[in-house]
Design a protein around this nucleic acid. Structure first.
Lengths: 326, 326
DNA sequence: ACAGGGGTTGAAAGCGTTTGCAGCCAGCCC
DNA sequence: GGGCTGGCTGCAAACGCTTTCAACCCCTGT
């Protein structure tokens, strides 16, 4: 049931040439307002849908919006993908998604590959160096998610406020010494959260012990959990929920009560967090909204304005945190 | 650094016309083998990449492969998406993914929308009626995942064998009465698993109690867990892991020991399953391979051969199952 | 030797859109 | 009133590819 109306049909219906029709629909100011409206009405009446392939052929620019992310299996990025995809679809466009398996080289290859198809990219947590990202931004419109590069547009959750909220919450419960189980050293998010930790300590009287850098998942969680116990902290804040999950698993293994002996706070608030036993206290990052916002920035006629947009986050308090054992 | 070589350049380099060059690269049998090789070498030497927009313009068929799935946030589908996306990329193509939010109407809209861009579709667990699916298959090449429609190609995990393995495992542990917490009534997978249950009971001396149909997640898990306890079963098999997660959470809430008092088995083996406490025994369905296989079927020059391909599944035994309390 | 034919190749016509350029018509200034 | 400017509009040329159709060559059968 693909629509059969061509631009030529619209032009005929509006009694103008295809050139004018094209300009009218593109919103060119050079065409008279009356003509423009007439063409637009004709297009609407005929249910005209532009042929993207033809447009792309002449402009050389793909119409799709591409999302490049490190790992679809990570629920956080899946959330971003949902947001991107929904917003793109609302625009009548299609979203190309590419997973890089957390590999910087794959990332570069993937970006090159989607280049001809999409002139607008959402890059989520790209691993490539700043220069490479900027190079990509030369050829296409780019918005970053969870990464900041001078001169480019970016969107992220409020990492500093997230860790602050977590710390305030733990402090209120009575914790005075908490561990931070960090993420990969190359992660911009981890760096941002660490900075937040430092800033928060000036306001919250709490000692933060750096437990190290871990890969999210069970292996990392295992190490982190053991280190947390050894560090004699009463609570641990994890870089993200996947790591927190691993920690929770290890603690259960070792028979350590959560939150009885150790409170655990995650970050991202992935959907399963609330399904755990105990449900995980976590900093809710609006993943889909990050995606939506990124697309929004890409939608304008111009390159998105550089700068970092920070979306608010919120601590979801659940049962993995409680007062420290007296 | 988009490549600048055009088909005309290749043709010139190979001393043939563009028509012949086009045919040679398309692998048309009508062109002489020697010529074909010469053109191919020239193309390779120049690093020629066909302009997909131009091709699409003339053929009217999009080159991308689209994946339509109910919910990216469901780790199982995220896995399928990974598989699809990786295989598509290996082919030098791009994958368009669209999430329908589990809504049949959105599904139809989405399919219509990706139509012009992609002439090959992977439909994962489509909600639409058989006829509608067949209608889509008229206009595009379609492979289904976790759904069977007469006359179409489809890929699925071996549902029957999965439940059989689960039942055999539980039986071996000594369970004789287990509950089945089903999925949505409209789900093809749930129906397939239920059929498997019936078939397995002929071989395994075990009584299966139908606990009902539940929506995956915490709400459904809550109800299912309570019903399982009331039904006086010693183990419960869940339609999928998300439901199992909800069940586990509810059981923990009520202080019911797992696997002490009740064993729990999931289905799909999503990545978090092994991170739970206790780690969840689950039927491993190779989600990414389902995606990969689906794409493979789509890659041939012709419509994929109708019929259901069944991929083997495997029970991952973890600590959520044990002997029933004596 | 010649007609016929299979096997290859090339010329050219689009596919639907954007866009540079030229043209038209008013209106305006002098 | 004539020449110009400037606002709109239309013509036609791309964009890079596939595919139809005709042409060509050389071989075969008679």
């Amino acid at each position: 049931m693909t629509n059969e109306a061509r631009l030529a049909d619209v032009a005929a219906a509006a009694q103008v040439s295809v050139a004018t029709a094209s300009r009218a629909l593109a919103g060119s100011t050079v065409v008279a307002a009356a003509t423009r409206d007439r063409v637009r009405r004709a297009a609407a009446r005929l249910g005209y849908e532009p042929n993207l392939a033809a447009r792309q052929l002449v402009t050389g620019q793909g119409q799709s919006i591409a999302l490049v992310l490190p790992d679809l299996a990570n629920p956080f990025y899946a959330g971003v993908a949902k947001g991107v995809q929904r917003r793109v679809r609302a625009e009548g466009l299609t979203a190309v998604v590419a997973d890089t398996d957390e590999d910087a080289e794959v990332e570069a290859a993937v970006i090159a590959q989607v280049g001809p198809v999409a002139a607008r990219l959402v890059l989520a947590s790209p691993r490539m160096p700043d220069d490479a990202v900027r190079a990509v931004a030369q050829r296409a419109r780019v918005v970053l998610v969870n990464r900041e590069v001078e001169g480019l547009a970016a969107v992220t959750g409020d990492n500093a406020d997230g860790v602050r909220q977590a710390l305030v919450h733990l402090h209120a419960l009575g914790h005075r010494r908490v561990g931070y189980a960090g993420g990969p050293a190359t992660s911009w998010s981890d760096a941002a959260r660490r900075r937040g930790l430092v800033a928060a300590r000036e306001r919250v009287e709490i000692e933060v012990v750096d437990l190290g850098a871990f890969r999210p998942g069970s292996a990392g969680g295992l190490a982190a959990a053991d280190l947390a116990l050894a560090a004699e902290v009463t609570a641990v804040l994890a870089f993200n929920d996947q790591l927190a999950l691993g920690i929770l698993g290890r603690l259960a293994d070792r028979g350590v009560a959560v939150p009885g002996r150790l409170s655990v706070v995650g970050f991202d608030d992935i959907p399963v967090a609330r399904l755990l036993a105990p449900p995980l206290t976590s900093v809710t990052v609006p993943a889909d909204e990050l995606g939506r916002t990124a697309v929004e920035l890409l939608l304008g006629p111009d390159r998105p304005e550089p700068g970092l947009r920070t979306l608010p986050v919120e601590l979801a308090v659940r049962r993995s945190t409680a007062e420290p054992a007296g």
